[in-house]
Structure formats: structure tokens, C-alpha cells
Design a protein around this nucleic acid. Structure first.
Lengths: 252, 252
DNA sequence: CGGAGCTTTGATCTTCCTCAAAAACTGTGG
DNA sequence: CCACAGTTTTTGAGGAAGATCAAAGCTCCG
């Protein structure tokens, strides 16, 4: 079951007052997260082409978005909220392979079938593209193709960093690396490096770092005790000393 | 120090009898691993363009090829042998992020500086390209760009599978998954699914699977005892039952 | 106010790591 | 072809990080 399931999603275009809002005339050109997204390489005319094939969606927390092994009909761009990507083993063990935030693209590494599942972490907004539509557009716009390659290259680098984390870091190093990465990504989106918004559960963090919920919780407790971090209201975490955190992340 | 270091590498073009061998007239067109490589999408004329920018190298076992953080001047295509890619932590802990074999490309995920190091496992042959040369060619040939995106996409999928392995699998599952992956890749290169050639050391395998040398060795011993595998001459490993191995790899 | 789900804490257990030494293999020179 | 030095692999004993099992606190909502 994907996000097309009835009752789980809302399509912006269906909203009763869409025609009243001038922004809906050129949604892509006026998109607030465009300069974070793959489409920032397109000019206004090309953005209109994109408008013609895009559907805007909003999904609640914990809504399935794609399912591993299902036909890869749609690709997405995250415009708000957060998404987790994950793979499962037969007995239910789960590995979260990444979190996506505003501006991140979902579906780069795609065959004819999805090779992982995706679920929203909190309330999330997405641009949805039919894969065939977007592929056609990529074929006709070399800069889009270059952009995609660039994004794939970045994801690959992040994946390699995550392999180092999963294979060789301790629980404390893993958690510090995670917080630091969230901080750096927030900065890239134009947000503050601290405090950072950490909407995912302890279980999600554990499944991302190759730890159990309990170990994540205990490690958080230790970091609080050692005044490395401070938990704040509304899932915000303050990082007391980025340099120190960097050292902890590398095992120094 | 990279493969350009004196005494470490031999450049085929420099071999004294290069002009005597008709194959050197159109090396790329006559390349034996072309249908495994990125360049299989090029026609004969384009292969000549490629010939103009390629250098053929041979490196012995355990030769450094690229070093993390050095300027990314060259990209490579592996034509024979095996290469390991790895990242290091400050205290020497190492994570091997992948092994490359004939037909595999080295350098997809590249910024201006290398983001990982690479070293030959055994005697290895490579095509070397200056990054600027290859990028220019990619810019002028849309099918090359598409090919690169495809390869990046495949690597990303492998990376995600490896994250699942590193984060959530047991030692036995890790080793079975590793052997099975080697087998499947050998098949893709047109080799037999078993026995498979496993030239890397126990330490390398450990650093790839997030285990110690000792644990790898012990797990091998168990697999031999349980008649899952049989070690043969010359680093060959016979897989007794691929289906059974598949089950062990998934924890079934 | 009450209940479901999430987080934290505690006690115990297991897998894998570490340290150590023996065994097997590799390549080299005599 | 063999001896031997260096390296890699295997095996063993003991230890530690993190997993598991269990229960108590919190939080968020209806």
C-alpha cells in the first residue's frame, strides 16, 4: 500500500481554494524549497513543463510512501517534513538506509521495482512524478541528467560514510556522527547548526545506526550527563560544542 | 602516493613491442572486458575518442591506486584483477566500502578530492582517464552520461544492501551474503557461480563486513564444518548449495 | 482521567572482540 | 628441492560492548 491509498493523502490541487491562490499559477517557479531541490537547474519555461507532470501531496506521520519490490511507478521530491528509507529482513530486522528532508529526492537508485521502502516520519509534503514522465524530461534536458548524476554521487558518498559508521564505530561515535550529520544538513537547508530538529523515534535512530532502542537511549543519557547535548522542547536537541562532537564522532 | 609512483606501475603503451601488436591499433574496440564496462555504450568512432584519452596500467598486489582527500585527478576502469575501496578513522580502524573487479568503474562518486582510498588486492590492470578528459567526453555524449547515472544507481543499491548487512546481520549471515554476492557478480562477468575466486585476505573480508579477522576465520571454519562451503586450491571457494547459502544470508 | 505508546533504567546474557600462541602458507635464496 | 623467515590463518581463553528481557516513568491525546 502506497501513498495513493484513500484517506492517507491529500492532493493540494484538490484543495477547494487552490484557484484563489496566485501561487498555484506557477507552483514550481514559486516553490519555497526550489533552491534545495533537483529542479533548481531548470529555467522558468522548463519549470512549467515540470508543473505539467507534478502532483503535490501531503501525508501524515508514519504513512507508507513506497514499498520495496513494488513496481516503481512514482518518484518524489520531499518539500517538507521528513522521510525514512529502509530495508527489511525476513524476520523483521530493519535497517534504515537514510532520512530525507526538504529538498531531497526519493528514487534515484531505482530499477523497475523499488529496492527499498519509504515512510514519512512526521507530516510530510511531497512532489510526486510518474517515473516515465520524469525520465522523459531527463532525456530531453541534459542539465537534469547531470543534476541527477550529481545527486547520485552525493548519496553514494553519504552511503560510504554510513558504512564506515555501521561497520567500525562505537555506539557513542555513531550517535555523535548522526547528530552532527543532521546539523550539517540543516545548515545546508539554511537552518541553524544548533539546536537541531530530531523528529524520529529512538527506534528509528537505532535502526539507522545499527543499534537497539535501549542502547540509543542509554547513549543519549550519557551525552546529556556529559553536557555534550541538551534536549529541548519539541524534539529539538541543542549541540553544546560542535568541535567536541566532531571529535567524539571520530573516536578522538 | 598513487599509482603514478615510479617502479610501481607499468604503462602498456610504453612496452617496447606495442607497435608490433595489431591489437594496439584500436585497443578500446578490441578490449576483452568492454561489454562489462561503461564504454560498452560507445560506437567504434567514439571508442577511438576514448583511446585518445586512456592510459593502460598494470599494478602489482597491494599497490595504492588513489588516496582519500588527494585531488581527484584520475578516474579508472578496472580491466582485470581486484581493487578494494576503503575509508579510515583517525586511529586506523578501516571500513572497506567495496571491491571492484573487471568491468567496474572507479570514481563515480567523486568531488574535487577523492572521498575514499583504493588499493589493488592482487595484480590488477586498469584504464586510467584524466578526470577533465572523461568529463568532457561525458558532456558531449548523452549516452555516456546516462550510463554513468545507471552505474551510480547500481552502486547505490549495492551500498544500501551493504548497510543492511553491516547494521543488522550476524557474522554468519554477513559471510554467506558476501560469498553469494561474489558469486552473483562472477556470473554477471560470465564466470561460473561456483567455485568463486576470493583473492582478498581474512583481514580485508573482516574490514568489509564489519568483523575482525578472527571472527571471519572462525565463521569460515564453521561453514566448512557444516559443509556449506569447501576451500579449494588458489583462493577458490566452492559453494555447495546456493539456495542454502541464500537462506543463511537472510537469516532463515 | 486513563490508556497506548514511547523512553528510560536495570539486570542478565550473548555475540563478537581482544589478546595470545600455534599452525599453515608464501616466497626467497642457497 | 629444501630451509627458513615473514606473513597470514587458525584456534583458544577471557573480556567487553551492546543485545535481550523486564519493568517503571513519561507523554501525548482522546
Amino acid at each position: 500500500m502506497g501513498i495513493t491509498a484513500a484517506g492517507k493523502t491529500r492532493i493540494y490541487n484538490d484543495s477547494p481554494n487552490a484557484h484563489e491562490n496566485v501561487e498555484y499559477e506557477n507552483p514550481c517557479a514559486n516553490c519555497s524549497v526550489r533552491d534545495l531541490s533537483f529542479c533548481n537547474c531548470l529555467n522558468n519555461q522548463e519549470l512549467e513543463e515540470l508543473d505539467a507532470i507534478v502532483t503535490h501531496l501531503e501525508v501524515p506521520a508514519r504513512a507508507p510512501i513506497i514499498d520495496e519490490k513494488e513496481p516503481a511507478e512514482f518518484l518524489f521530491n520531499v518539500t517538507g517534513g521528513a522521510v525514512k528509507l529502509y530495508k527489511l529482513l525476513a524476520d523483521g530486522r530493519r535497517q534504515i538506509t537514510g532520512f530525507l528532508f526538504a529538498g531531497d529526492f526519493l528514487g534515484i537508485a531505482m530499477k523497475d521495482n523499488y529496492v527499498y521502502s519509504a515512510e514519512s516520519v512526521n507530516k510530510t509534503t511531497l512532489c510526486r512524478f510518474r517515473r516515465t514522465d520524469l525520465e522523459e524530461m531527463v532525456d530531453n534536458h541534459a542539465k537534469l541528467s547531470k543534476q541527477m548524476l550529481n545527486m547520485a554521487s552525493n548519496e553514494l558518498e553519504m552511503a560510504q560514510e554510513q558504512m564506515l559508521l555501521l561497520g567500525r564505530k562505537t555506539a557513542k561515535e555513531k550517535l555523535c556522527s548522526f547528530l552532527l550529520t543532521l546539523s550539517k544538513r540543516a545548515e545546508k537547508r539554511g537552518e541553524a547548526a544548533t539546536p537541531i530538529y530530531v523528529p524520529m523515534s529512538r527506534a528509528d535512530i537505532g535502526d539507522y545506526l545499527g543499534l537497539t532502542t535501549e542502547t540509543v537511549s542509554r547513549t543519549f543519557t550519557n551525552l546529556k550527563r556529559d553536557r555534550v547535548i541538551r534536549l529541548q522542547e519539541g524534539s529539538m536537541i541543542h549541540l553544546n560544542d560542535l568541535e567536541e562532537l566532531e571529535d567524539h564522532a571520530e573516536g578522538l
